[in-house]
């Protein structure tokens, strides 16, 4: 029996500074196997001596032995990660959890709502969808950030906005002298979106405070609970349903999530 805590080693191949606090890391496994993930799944990232933390995968599924994570400096481990140089080795376990239902939402209009670093796992989904653009309907991405400096993946957002039938709206929380676009929270722009509720699947990823309001907004748009998917964040220490930290009632987020169908967790107290 192999220990579930053993890991694969990966080399940091490229580091891209996205904002003051966020960097994108391209990781290449020392072995030649792929990560084998689906968008929305996460990995446990290790730096020996500093510890381990759950990090969502930011790149789409890849046939090569590489993938990307985008990490904000928020804690102990992420701090150390940001001091590492290209060529450093880190440990990877996973992928873990359930991701977005990429197949199920085919042939639908896709409404994506991301807040802050919620765009990180969302990017994996968007890139996956765009690889098979024809299989999906209209795509709308509503992306809220605190201020213009916090916008992640600026170049890619630009590219996506040029994709046919891809409606991109970025909004910053408060008016900013250098910002000509939308301001205010994302929910403010929900009413004006033209949505065909019958054929729309919505995906939400953002900070805990965002969910309640976005879900209310989507309800007003008459999108059914089983067509809304969201990714929940919780503290995690093992990734394999043992350590107890991510438990909400009877549900372990690391096992049954992090992506849930809203109708499945509406009655799950403490979830949202």
């Amino acid at each position: 029996m192999e220990s579930p805590y053993l890991l694969r080693q990966a080399r940091i191949e490229r580091i891209t500074r996205l904002t003051e606090k966020e960097r994108l890391f391209r990781l290449v496994f020392e072995d030649d196997k792929t990560l084998g993930h689906v968008p929305g799944q996460f990995i446990m990232l290790s730096i020996f001596g500093a510890g381990e933390a759950p990090i969502s995968v930011s790149s789409p599924p890849d046939t090569r032995n590489e993938f990307e994570i985008c990490v904000r400096v928020v804690g102990s481990l992420t701090n150390v990660l940001h001091t590492l140089l290209k060529g450093s080795t880190v440990g990877i376990r996973g992928p873990y959890g359930k991701g977005f239902p990429v197949k199920e939402i085919e042939n639908k209009d896709i409404l994506l709502i991301a807040g802050g670093i919620g765009l990180v796992p969302m990017r994996s989904l968007i890139k996956t969808i765009l690889l098979k653009r024809g299989a999906y309907g209209r795509i709308t991405l509503l992306y809220g950030v605190k201020s213009p400096e916090d916008i992640l993946f600026k170049d890619e957002l630009d590219e996506w906005s040029k994709v046919p039938d891809f409606d991109l709206r970025i909004t910053v929380d408060k008016p900013h002298p250098l910002w000509k676009g939308h301001t205010g929270v994302v929910t403010r722009y929900l009413p004006e979106l033209k949505i065909d509720a019958e054929r729309t699947a919505a995906v939400i990823v953002g900070p805990p405070v965002m969910y309640k309001y976005v879900i209310m907004g989507l309800g007003e748009k008459r999108i059914a609970g089983h067509e809304i998917f969201l990714s929940l964040e919780r503290r995690m220490k093992c990734g394999i349903g043992k350590c107890g930290h991510c438990q909400i009632n009877s549900v372990y987020i690391c096992q049954e999530g992090p992506v849930f169908r809203l109708s499945d967790i509406r009655r799950l107290r403490e979830a949202i």
Binding site: A50, G51, V80
Partner: peptide
């Protein structure tokens, strides 16, 4: 050790 590792 934490300070030397760069962790909090």
């Amino acid at each position: 050790k934490a300070l030397l590792t760069g962790k909090r």
